[in-house]
Design a protein around this nucleic acid. Structure first.
Length: 426
DNA sequence: AATCCACAGGAAGCCCGGGAAC
DNA sequence: GTTCCCGGGCTTCCTGTGGATT
């Protein structure tokens, strides 16, 4: 190995360092300073100071779209809270659940119980362990027994527990909102401990189809995180890039461009950061001395491409076949692809694969779905006597479609596919 | 003005797999 | 285990429609 020094690694070391520490440029990183969230932080801090004073904290609903800093703000405040609590030797525990993963009544209660149990084991002498309720298995117990177990664990000592339910709207849409009812009245079953519930939702409307009792009890306080505008995003990016990038590596306008892109996409700070980091990575690959706006443009395209590729790959097989039909038709006779054309090609492709042929109605629906995803562009046009149809146009790179689709589908002999006689138009 | 094409897209109901309740 | 229920994918049937053609 030694004689090879001077090779790859040294070369890499000699080139200009783009990143100082790219961790700061990831959206998962929780910064200690959250620009333009002073109002929300202030409001939440007022709520969560309660347990430090020995009072029960109010339950809170937090609303805001993705990338508006909800989770980061809450995590930051919780760290602070736990820090201050241990200074004052108060028992305050935080239990964080992501409801996208923990998405049933049983799992919420079980995960919560096990979290509480773990904290408890850390907090008290190990010899007491035999008194503890058992660990809840991830399946098997009746739900009410899990609940009793949880209550027992919570009440084991005087303490405050803050339960954070991230992506809480997932619970409601899956119809498991009765667990929220249980949580909302948890305090009435407790004597030593007090629980505060924090619900974080991407969906601003989600509370509207919630049982009014749950709504009023869990939503005692509401905090809204509005989307960032472009200047605010710039501030955030500025702050992160100071730590994340080497000094002076960013060309003027790079941050502004990233912010502008993301501001157009609903003020999503996560997207803005991804774009900035990607731009840096592209600059690094190109061994560039600076990160320029053209790197940002490339990053933006790359992100879009990756998104599309993932979308196409994760499509159900039937949809892939429909997409393939659009591709075939477009290559064959260029543009002006109509639903009827697609259906014919689709059904023969289907037979070729030995698959069931879906109905016209369904295929029409699948085309609409592809349209909504942005994989194709479909618009309804009327050709007078020749009827109304959708004109479909591929919106992604044909090569991408090919590579994504070919894993599952082997298309043989495209020339044998039917082509409808070209009708006269205009 | 009336006709009629080639679909769009809504409504209702079927089927099937999986999870909860019995 | 069985039964029940639910949601999603799908079909069938249907009504609606913009504008070239008659």
């Amino acid at each position: 190995m030694k004689e090879k020094s001077g090779g790859v690694f040294e070369e890499l070391l000699e080139t200009q360092q783009i990143f100082d520490d790219r961790e700061y440029l990831r959206s998962s990183y929780v910064p200690e300073n959250l620009p333009h969230r002073e109002e929300q932080i202030d409001k939440l801090a007022r709520i969560w100071v309660a347990p430090l004073r020995g009072e029960t904290p109010s339950n809170v609903f937090i609303y805001g779209k993705t990338g508006t800093g909800k989770t980061a703000t809450v995590k930051y405040l919780m760290e602070e809270l736990e820090g201050v609590a241990s200074d004052l030797s108060k028992e305050i525990e935080v239990s964080y659940l992501n409801c996208e993963v923990v998405d049933t009544k049983y799992r919420v209660l079980a995960t919560l119980a096990n979290n509480v149990r773990e904290e408890l084991i850390d907090g008290v002498d190990v010899e007491d362990l035999s008194d503890f309720p058992d660990e809840v298995p991830m399946t098997g117990w009746p739900t009410d027994e899990v609940y009793e177990n949880l209550v027992e664990l919570l009440d084991y000592r005087e303490q405050f527990i803050i339960v954070i339910l991230d992506e809480i709207d997932r619970l409601v849409s899956k119809g498991t909102s009765d667990v929220l009812y249980l949580l909302s009245r948890l305090n009435s079953d407790l004597t030593n401990a007090k629980v505060g519930v924090v619900g974080i939702s991407n969906d601003l409307e989600f509370a509207s189809d919630l049982d009014p009792r749950i709504k009023s009890s869990l939503g005692e306080e509401e905090v809204v995180f509005p989307p960032y505008n472009a200047p605010q995003l710039e501030d955030i990016l500025e702050e992160r890039s100071e730590k994340g990038f080497s000094d002076g590596i960013l060309e003027d306008g790079v941050i502004r461009l990233c912010a502008a892109h993301a501001a157009r996409k609903h003020g999503d700070a996560r997207k803005a950061l991804d774009m900035l980091r990607n731009a840096g990575e592209i600059a690094e690959e190109e061994k560039s001395k600076k990160v320029t706006t053209s790197h940002v443009t490339k990053a933006s395209k790359k992100i879009e491409r990756d998104r599309m590729e993932e979308a196409v790959e994760s499509l159900p097989n039937q949809s892939k076949l429909v997409l393939m039909s659009v591709l075939v038709l477009q290559e064959r006779k260029s543009s002006r692809v109509s639903t009827g054309d697609i259906y014919e090609v689709y059904s023969s492709l289907c037979q070729q694969q030995g698959w069931e042929v879906l109905s016209r109605r369904r295929v029409s629906g699948l085309i609409s779905e592809l349209d909504m995803m942005g994989v194709v562009n479909a618009r309804v046009v009327s050709n007078g006597r020749h009827g109304r149809t959708k004109e479909v146009e591929l919106k992604v790179d044909p090569l991408q479609v090919r590579s994504a689709v070919q894993d599952e589908i082997y298309v043989q002999d495209l020339d044998s596919l039917p082509v409808r006689k070209q009708k006269r138009l205009g």
